[in-house]
Design a protein around this nucleic acid. Sequence first.
DNA 1: ACTTGTGAACTGTTTCACAGCA
DNA 2: TGCTGTGAAACAGTTCACAAGT
Lengths: 222, 222
Amino acid sequence: MSSPRKVSDSTVRRLSSYLRILRDIQSDGTHTVSSERLAELGGLTSAQVRKDLSFFGNFGVRGRGYDVGDLRTALTGILGLDRTWKTVVVGAGRLGSALISYPEFPNQGFAIVGVFDVDPSKLGRRIGDCEIRPVQELRDYAERESISVGIIATPRVAAQEAADHLVAGGIRAILNFAPMALDVPPGVTVRHVNLAIELEGLSFAITESSNVPTTIETGDAD
Amino acid sequence: MSSPRKVSDSTVRRLSSYLRILRDIQSDGTHTVSSERLAELGGLTSAQVRKDLSFFGNFGVRGRGYDVGDLRTALTGILGLDRTWKTVVVGAGRLGSALISYPEFPNQGFAIVGVFDVDPSKLGRRIGDCEIRPVQELRDYAERESISVGIIATPRVAAQEAADHLVAGGIRAILNFAPMALDVPPGVTVRHVNLAIELEGLSFAITESSNVPTTIETGDAD
DNA sequence: ACTTGTGAACTGTTTCACAGCA
DNA sequence: TGCTGTGAAACAGTTCACAAGT
């Protein structure tokens, strides 16, 4: 149904950013926006904005710009944010608990409907609306409840097993917070949020700028 | 002291990944590793590995490969992980609290020495080794204690102010978990961890693969 | 007149392929 | 022989510049 062309990861990330900007300016009462203005608000070039959008269709009107509401609706649809994705969290430690209460998840249509942990002492406890269940039940639960997304917030050693259960239960996508690469079959999408890598990137940037006192060329926000 | 050439963000991320692999295989007792093996373990090509490393020096021995210990030491130095970075966390909510106890931070040499929050009811409470202090004290504290890194785990609306305090206090790098772009002066490095964007990327991937039933070309882990 | 949509040019990154050395 | 280090080639992503539409 949608365009079969391969869309780059960076393009998809920028679509998210456009959508956030559109939401912001729509609540200010703005009805029309040019690629130039969108670029300015997102810290990009107007050509970039037009290229990204033209990948998915002709949303603009020449001489006029883009209708904020229409473009927002279009992007919401393209990103699949016009529906609810049933989501489970594996790992009810501090990070898992924090994620369960993170308002951005329900905001984007990710409904956390189940939480799983290996620790028997945690079972039955509630976090938010969810009771903590044993990981042994994860596969069946995911299958029975048609869960689309799994969030892995376990320690490193438990992550691959968690992924295996999720995949066996028919999950489609995984957001992985454990600091290791997961092995999953094709057709399952993994996004890896690796805090260690982010930290090491910061460390590198500070170290490098200390060592090269004349040139300060970093400072790249987002 | 180090090479003045511009190193791409993706290269730095891969260096982190090589370092993690080296740590793993060193504890297995491996002393030498080829670019081929390193590539296999990191899910890359051997040419990529050699290009990345050659950017920083000639670490390998032709016909033999790389010495695991030596390369580990070299990468640790390049990434600036051979020292301790004094770090503060702004925002002592659920995410902030989870981050303070996240073992990866001390592991990478990021010592969390202070926690700040606006909420007066939280002041004085302890999380880990740190007492929660008022954000009004953030600037002076950062300056006095020579803090290098700030982690922003506040809600969206408080993030820019937190960044301003950190910058005024002489911070060098920020890890931003708030879902908004921060405005900081050149010389301050920001890494943005935006869970909403990661989620929207997953949503897009699932949506797209549902709509194009014949081609399943995703499944890109890490 | 104004602003989109897009081929063409450009820039940056990855892969190839092999010379050079242990 | 085996594996690194690196120019050259291929590819991907971004920016330019302008024709086309309102």
